[in-house]
Every structure is written in C-alpha cells, then in structure tokens.
Design a protein around this nucleic acid. Sequence first.
DNA 1: GTGAAAGCGCTAACAG
DNA 2: CTGTTAGCGCTTTCAC
Lengths: 323, 323
Amino acid sequence: MSNITQIAKRAKVSRTTVSRVLNHHSYVNAEKREAVLKAIKELNYVPNLNAINLSRGKTNVIGIIVHKINHPYFSDLIERIGKEFDKHNYSLLVHQSNNDPKKELEFFNMLKYKMIDGLILGSSVSPTSVIDELSYFGKIVSCEYSKSNKIAKVYANHESSIKMAVDHLRDQGHQEIGLCIGSPQSGVGTTRKKSFFNLQKEYHLNWRDDWYFEERYTIEDGVEVAKEIIGQPSRPTAMVVGSDHVATGIIYEAKKQGIKIPEELAIIGFGNQPISKIVELTSINPMIEAGETAANLLYSMIQNQDVPFNNTIELELIKRKST
Amino acid sequence: MSNITQIAKRAKVSRTTVSRVLNHHSYVNAEKREAVLKAIKELNYVPNLNAINLSRGKTNVIGIIVHKINHPYFSDLIERIGKEFDKHNYSLLVHQSNNDPKKELEFFNMLKYKMIDGLILGSSVSPTSVIDELSYFGKIVSCEYSKSNKIAKVYANHESSIKMAVDHLRDQGHQEIGLCIGSPQSGVGTTRKKSFFNLQKEYHLNWRDDWYFEERYTIEDGVEVAKEIIGQPSRPTAMVVGSDHVATGIIYEAKKQGIKIPEELAIIGFGNQPISKIVELTSINPMIEAGETAANLLYSMIQNQDVPFNNTIELELIKRKST
DNA sequence: GTGAAAGCGCTAACAG
DNA sequence: CTGTTAGCGCTTTCAC
C-alpha cells in the first residue's frame, strides 16, 4: 500500500504536485504529470479517503435515519435521497432507529464526530432540545414536522390531511369512522391521532375505543386489523388508515370474509403507494416528492446556501373504489 | 471545536493521557482522569472520527451495494444486515447500482480507498476479474452466487429451485409453463433463465416465446404481465415467477379479469414474502436468512477468522392455493 | 502510570 | 508552474 510521498519520490516531484495531478488542480507540467501517473501505476497507488476526509474536513457522506429500513415508505425515501445525492457524488450512511431514542442519539454522533456532512431525519422521536443542540454540529433536514427551528423541514400538514380524509368519508355519509396509525410517538402519528380525535368530537361522530389501532405498519398488520374489526359487535363503517399497505391488508381480508368494499366498509389510506392502484384504494398523497426535496434542501445547505426551513407539502385525495 | 491537544493543555497532561481516558485504555491516575474529563466538558470536546479512522486504519463502516434500495428483497436484506452489524457498532454505507457496472465500480472504490472495512454484494453485475481484483483490498461477501473464489458467498442453488418449481407444476399436470424473471444479467437471473430452458427442453414442455418475461420487479409489473398473458391467443397454464411481488400482481390482475387461480392459471413465486401469505401464493423460500448469514460471515472475516466461502442455502417449497 | 515523538496520508496557503 | 511548510486530529510504540 503506497502513499503520496512514495509517489512523489518515485516521480521526483513534491507531494503537492502529486496531489495536484490527483485532484486535477491547476496545470502541471506535462512531463511531471506523466511521471506521476507512471509512478501511480507502478506502485498501485490508491488514495486513502480517511486522510482526504480528515484533511478536507468533510466526507461527502450524508446520514439518514429512519424508523425501519424495509418499510416501503422509508425504503422509497432512502432510494430517492440516495439517487439525488449520487448526482453530487455523495454516499449514504443509513441507520435504523426502531424509534428508539438511544439508537438515534448514537447515530447523531456521526454528525458530531464529522463522519457525515449532513443528516436527514426520515423519522425521529428525539425531543426538540436534542435536535436543536445537534443542529450546532451540522446541517439537518427533517422529513416530518419538527418544532425545532434550527433545521429545515419538509412535511405534510397531517392535520389537514386527516381532515381531508374525514371530510371525504362524511361526504359519503359515514358517521362511524375508525382510525389506524403507525407509531403514536412519532411526529406524524401524534398529529394524526390528535387531529382525528379533535374532528371526531367537533363533528359529533360516533365512537368506540376499539375502533382505534396503533403500531400497524404492514400488509399483515392490516389483515389483523380487519379481523379485529370484523369480530366487533358494532364495527365502524369506514376506516382512516395511516398507511396504504395496512389499508391493503384490511381490504384484502375484508373482501375475503365477504365484506363489501366500500359499501360495508370504506377505507382510505395515505401515500398513494403503487399497491393502492392495484387494490383500488382511495389514498391521500403528497403533491411533491419529499425525498428529492429533502435531498436538495440538504445539499443546498451543505453548500452554505440559504433555504426555506419550513416546506409544507400540499396533499391531494386520489379517489378510487375503496370509498 | 476543540481537539485533543487543547484538552491536554487545559488538563495539564499529555495528549496520550487524554487519548487513554477517551479509549478507556489502561489505568489513569484518578485526578488526571478527572481533570481530563473536566476539560472535555468545559471545551465541549467531540472526537473527530476521520482522524480516528485514519489513525486506526479502519472505519467501522461496511458497505452494501444492491440493485435497487426499495425493492422489497433488497430493503429486507439491508435491514437485516444493518441490524446484525449494529450489534458490533458498525454502520452501513448503502449504495444502489441499478445494475450499472460503472456505478458498482464507483462504489467499489469505497473499499479500495479504505472508507469501508468490508463489502457486501447484495447483487452485482461485475465480471469475476473485477471482483477478484477488488478482493485484494478487503473482505467481501456476496449474497448471490459468484464465480470468484476470493470472496465468501451465501447463495441459493437457483438451478435446483427452478427445478423444484417446474417439477411441482408438472406434478399438477402443467405442460405449458411460462417464466418471468428480473434482470437477465444478474447472477440469479442468468441461472434461472438457463435452468428453466434446460428443463423445458428436457421435459419436452410446450413453449412459446411470448411466455417469457424479464426485467419485472414490482406488483405493478405483475399486473402488466398478467394483461399480456391474458391477451395471448394461447396462454400458458402456469407461470414461474422470480419475485413474489410480481407474482402477486399477476394473481391480482388475473382474478380481476375473472381468471381462476390456480385452475386456469397457476402461479409460483420466490421468496415467501409476507404478501405471499396474503394472496395465498405458492412460493419457494430459503431456509436460512441470507442477510444475517452474510453479515456474520463478513464480521468474522473482518476479525480475520476463517470462514467457509461457499455457503449454500437450502430451499423449500411452501405450497399455497395458487398452484 | 505517564509523556515524547513518530506516525496515519493528504491538502492548501504561501512564496517563489 | 512547483516546492516548502504547516497543518487536519488522533493513536501508539517506546522509554522513563
């Protein structure tokens, strides 16, 4: 394993010159350049990124933390952010928190310790104070609402999206509406839950506690939810479901049990995932891509450009046959 | 931003001592230790990982490259590998290649340049020569079959899995069997395709070229495949489908068009993904978890332990109602 | 138990 | 266009 000094010696130039040809800096005399290139070949030289990173004070790596890597929402998010940053020659350090604040804290050190140049919060359960303090160490973009005003955010208004869903269902005549969300601790979950129950009171909707479900993420979870609903003595006529995949599971199981969608059970999901087209699920969807937006925001911030910190995402309701 | 030298000065000790308390090395006089800790607090010291990495010659990061981050197979793989390495305090640098050899090569530099301590090939389209050369720079584990004998591999025998599928369908009386795979360039795709056509000849199965589909990855792709099949003047009575998700799409669309599964069209998938239970898809499944296995192999290799390079995964056929 | 000194490998300001 | 020199921040032998 050779280094720049050996190349310099062999090519009979200074290390600076080697560095210059390596980085295509300014012009280097053709002969010397050739000598350097020759030495590089002969010694099988490869650069050491850790040295470069240390010297430059940056790594061209950005971090992203999510609740669960293989949840479709997050894997899509990671994919889009990765693709976007790839254009700028940045790599992605991906971490899964399982919504565990300790795990988040651990990963946040990557920013503090200068292992990553920026951080994207796919989801976070850390208190604002932690985020505020962290922001001192580097650029951060959150893909959900955050109270911190030290970081950029790109988020949908989940309050209005819940209203969009409930209003839509009420328009169809529903008065018994259940709710199913993911993590009630996450920003998204908290807001959805709160907004829903506010509306439920405001509209004087009927309610039973067993119409509420949380910590549901997958198609299989949806199947379970459907079973629970169907077993109830008096079940809701409609469900607002935080994830298209869970909603898909509900539809699948309900249909299997001979329940007519939407006549006997209406379902509305979120995210307009590919699968929603297939099961003809009505879904509420962001009108911009949060991943790309977050990536571009962060990239600009890393370039020390000013960006808006509050970026709200407009939503639209895509009506299909499940409502 | 303070560094170890400033801490040393303030605590009136040497940098070595600071380093020792930081790393819990040997014993340090209680008073000096306190002084160091105090200085660290006062100066808001945070370590610089790049310096540590450079000095130590390792990063505690491993890289993983996959065709597509948000394909369920790969996002599951990443999740499992991440979880496994998290136990050892390793982070994950994730890269998507889109099966582009150039993109792969770019990421391989992360290993050469010492940015990562090891590499997992979720999928790869690079020639053996490239992998062989790369193996010189670090430990590599492939999650699919590879001709390279310089890296560890954990792979299913796709030849026998195809045979398992075709035999099963023949047992049910099928003579007209179609094939649908992902990338025909990937190791998996190549083998599946070749094995299938060998069998098709050996068994004298009927065949039409329009019973073959490639580059299909998603549920939506499956819907398209179903539409194409159904539109054919003489369609196959069964399909071997490389992905459960694509198979799910086929089932969904076929049923929608009133085609009876499995009477009029039998479907067999691969991977036993959660969704396969829901659509009652027969699926062929590995009996061990490739992700965990690959992670543990790589971890052992990084510890300079000897590991078996050829790790085959046994498969089982999980019969459900689609065949 | 502690410190001096020599790395780890590269970059960049400055002078010529 | 090129070299000198001073970092970047931490680890680790080796003496004492």
